[in-house]
Design a protein around this nucleic acid. Structure first.
Lengths: 237, 237
DNA sequence: GGCTGCTATTTGTCTGAGTATTGGGGCGCG
DNA sequence: CGCGCCCCAATACTCAGACAAATAGCAGCC
């Protein structure tokens, strides 16, 4: 017993936060549920109370839990979770992700990315275009099967968000990235390739580089729709 | 000296986090800047090192800072801040908000809310419509000058996001709310009324209740555009 | 000039004590 | 019986001080 909580690769409080965070977002601890009190919990994880408390503070900062004297630390209703927090999103994907949540994520992408593409077409400068082209080149060279190609894919989407010149949209990078990476992961797991996504990416790139706002929006909509179809999620409506 | 950090209304670590958070997002501590070391900082604020550390953990969880041994705690580049975190957003509005950021916020609203209205029109049920109508009634009764009216305004926008049946969109509630409340605050401060926003809200409500997706999108676009115009922010392009 | 090992600084972790808050139960009173 | 008040115990909160671990920067060596 007193399983030694994984060999230390990072700070202890981060490790504990990860562990608790995953347990919460994957449903091991349901909303409304009360966590063990600090003393028991820290002893069970064989960490000091301070380390455990700092972990809980992090979860609280992300809206996952709330602590009060006498009552203890309670898991918040999902509604209060910061689902767009990169770390929370990461914890989600540690377990099985519900199809409903994936559809929500793609729907958000379908709302945000076409609009972002449109704005990017209006505001991009030479540096943006260079970033996009570099990413597209690397995608073509490596293919989407390899990690390099996937990284390039994410850089492409990120470059577009950057080109919008909108900080709040840029914050959604991690959210988009989660959906993007899930698509390729899914396709690899299931071996089916679907249509080659590279031409669609290039079409988006051309429209943005050419300043064609409407075209960029349309091309991006098409791209996301295609990705959604590949995941075999039934359309939302 | 050793000014006693406000009479305790909430937890000490929350108070410290608020104070540091505001100082960072309002630019008192620039990105890249190094914070005092824990001992000095905690002494200056007259709190224990543990309380200070828990506060820093919260800021780190929101992407504002990063701590490393020997180097210290450094303010992250804005790019890594979770700008959509409700608390971070709240801290922003403690100081002067840059026009650029406000435009970004409205632009995000312009991306999200029309799409949300469209989805809401497709998926709303009786309860959603009831919520919207109740909010509209209260807005009409109190007017947007009074706190009750403003609260109702936010409930209206929230009801729409709820009706989308999309958790990730719902997470943006606080972001939308920030932009909404800023509009009314601005209008009160400057005394100018602009067009009465109530009819536009009612138009959105009617379209959603009637299941008119395209109409809902159009009406919402109009509503947000109007709000943007009232704030006298120059249009983004 | 570059590598290597030392050292000082800073965060990280632990422990144990005392404080503040508050939900709930008991008790009195109407 | 019902209602309000007070007390109590459980819990998180705060504090203080010590030691451990990591690491940037430097000195010294090859």
């Amino acid at each position: 017993m007193t399983a030694p909580l994984a060999t230390r690769l990072k700070r202890l409080h981060d490790t504990v936060a990860d562990r608790l965070g995953v347990a919460i977002v994957t449903g091991v601890h349901q909303p409304g549920e009360l966590l063990e009190n600090e003393v028991q919990a820290s002893e069970r994880l064989s960490v000091s109370r301070s380390a455990y408390r700092e972990a809980v503070r992090m979860l609280a900062a992300k809206g996952l839990v709330e602590s009060r004297p006498k009552t203890g630390t309670r898991v918040n209703p999902r509604r209060r979770w910061n689902l767009l927090d990169p770390q929370v999103l990461g914890w989600m994907f540690e377990g099985e992700v519900s199809p409903q949540f994936l559809r929500d994520l793609f729907e958000l992408r379908l709302v945000v990315e076409p609009a972002a593409a449109e704005l990017a077409a209006q505001r991009r400068d030479a540096a943006d275009v260079a970033r996009m082209d570099a990413a597209l080149d690397e995608m073509a060279r490596h293919g989407l099967g390899k990690p390099e190609g996937q990284a390039a894919d994410q850089r492409f989407h990120d470059a577009i968000l950057q080109a919008t010149r909108n900080e709040t949209l840029l914050t959604l990078t991690s959210t988009i990235a989660a959906a993007v990476s899930w698509t390729t992961r899914y396709k690899q797991r299931n071996g089916q390739l679907g249509r080659d996504p590279l031409p669609d990416h290039q079409a988006v790139g051309r429209a943005i580089a050419g300043g064609d706002a409407a075209g960029a929006r349309a091309a991006m909509t098409e791209l996301v729709r295609l990705a959604l179809a590949d995941t075999e999620l039934s359309p939302a409506d």
